[in-house]
Design a protein around this nucleic acid. Sequence first.
DNA 1: TTTGTTTGCCAACAGTTGTTGGCATTCATA
DNA 2: TATGAATGCCAACAACTGTTGGCAAACAAA
Lengths: 193, 193
Amino acid sequence: MSGRSRTDRFPRSVETRARILAAARSLFATQGYRGTTIRAVAAEADIHPSMVMRYFDSKEGLFAAAAELDLRLPDLSDVKPAELGVTLVRLFLERWEGADAGDELPALLGAAPTNAAARERLVEVFKMQVGPMVARSARAENKEQCAALIVSQMLGLAFTRYILRLPAVVALPPEVIEREVGATIQNYLMPER
Amino acid sequence: MSGRSRTDRFPRSVETRARILAAARSLFATQGYRGTTIRAVAAEADIHPSMVMRYFDSKEGLFAAAAELDLRLPDLSDVKPAELGVTLVRLFLERWEGADAGDELPALLGAAPTNAAARERLVEVFKMQVGPMVARSARAENKEQCAALIVSQMLGLAFTRYILRLPAVVALPPEVIEREVGATIQNYLMPER
DNA sequence: TTTGTTTGCCAACAGTTGTTGGCATTCATA
DNA sequence: TATGAATGCCAACAACTGTTGGCAAACAAA
């Protein structure tokens, strides 16, 4: 087939490309779209601003590349139905507080309120990734309503704990979140009434 | 005591001042802090940009004035304890979807992810207004945890429905929100276990 | 009418922004 | 070694930003 890949022949480019992306995600997450400047990204990536343009064409292109997002929701068919809520919340906490957190979702959440592209990306992500997952797990009649309720609680937790960092929410111990929010999700998934 | 108020003597100024504030709130809500320019505010208020500066000293001053926020949480001591959750959610919906909604909270939510002043203001608001209200109503042992959980769900609903406008969340009928989210809040307020 | 304050517009400043084109250096390949 | 592509830095542009000071019209008080 094809010989060596482009990555093999020009390893430097992919490394700096990754460096730029990491810097961009970090800044988009904390400063939002407009608050993030090409120059600041370049400085944090330790490279000249014009290179950012050459790699990603424009600021919009940079954001599009930086906000590529895969929630990596696992298959939950093995989980006991009664433990779905807690399992989902535990997974959520691990993802946000673990080392492999990644800055894509914070970047999207930070930018979405004021940036149309970020908002549309988020809408797409939840429609394509969360919707089907809930549809497989929920026992409720109206699965779309069910997914919407779950998203409202999960994103609310992410928003208040990791974006706004409201002290009371930050102070919540993971066990309490697992138990309480887990019960909420469980109830949304399969109402007892 | 004092003679005529400043408002009586210079009615024109207070009217344009209000016009500037309304324009500022609307723009801060949709464009965030950095995305909102003095010139854009002035244009929407139909006045010269320099006047915005004279009225509010600086962009920061304008934001501080535009983000003055009173959640106007009512006294809930007359409400039956078992109906606190639903009552709170109904109130929340009326406030956000009613005519007297006001743009202060959207402005704060839109700006908070990327603006320190907005974030601190929100932290303050929830500490001073939501905290005490929950403390009076909750039966749980740890009232601060209780308030944090409630805020995470309520702000999550506001964020996904009115800021992100995720289609599935927007589509939720008010009755469903009242019933489902109301049950969640009720459970946070006074757990059955 | 005269005086002093308020309200408003205008022009301009200094700094920052995204973006561009040119030129030097590195480096794989022939 | 010679060639051409890839990588990188630099200077500069045009547009936009918050902010300032000056000047004209409106207006209340004397």
